[in-house]
């Protein structure tokens, strides 16, 4: 390969080290504010605040009925909700700090919180 001959031994070292640096930058920058808590609210009041470590299910009662919330290590979601449009259920798993699923008709919400408080949107 004529192109490969242009790479000197130290270049391979630089390429490998850089690739390793890029690889290790992914967990540093993409999970920096690791999700560590889920805050479940009902009628605006905190119903439960759970560490995202164990596998748990919560049944939260609201004006329409029961909203089921599942918590798993690192993520949480609304499993079922009596609301008509099911937006919060369709959102699926929430795993980044700041993410929130709101079941408005039943007045229940699940929010993911990390070590640092993050904004849910930024405009500039």
């Amino acid at each position: 390969m004529p192109w490969l001959r242009l790479i000197r031994p130290g270049d391979w070292l630089v390429i490998l080290l850089s690739a390793a640096a890029v690889g290790s930058s992914i967990p540093i920058f993409w999970q920096g504010g690791l999700a560590d808590r889920a805050i479940i609210r009902q009628e605006g009041r905190v119903f439960a605040e759970v560490d995202l470590k164990a596998r748990k299910q919560f049944a939260v009662g609201g004006p329409l009925g029961i909203t089921l919330i599942a918590v798993e290590p690192g993520r949480a979601r609304v499993v079922s909700d009596p609301g008509p449009r099911q937006y919060c259920v369709k959102q699926g798993w929430l795993m980044r700090p700041g993410e929130i699923a709101i079941c408005a008709p039943n007045r229940v919400s699940v929010q993911i919180a990390g070590r640092t408080k993050v904004y849910d949107s930024i405009s500039y």
């Binding site: 890029v22 930058s25 920058f29 920096g32 904004y119 930024i122």
Partner: peptide, 28 residues
């Protein structure tokens, strides 16, 4: 805002790929 740094892995990956390609062309 620290949100900019979310793009770091993408930019760093692109820097590695394009850096290597440009370096090869320069070496050639």
């Amino acid at each position: 805002h620290d949100g900019v740094f979310l793009l770091t892995p993408l930019f760093a990956g692109a820097a590695l790929v394009f850096g290597t390609i440009n370096g090869l062309i320069a070496a050639k």
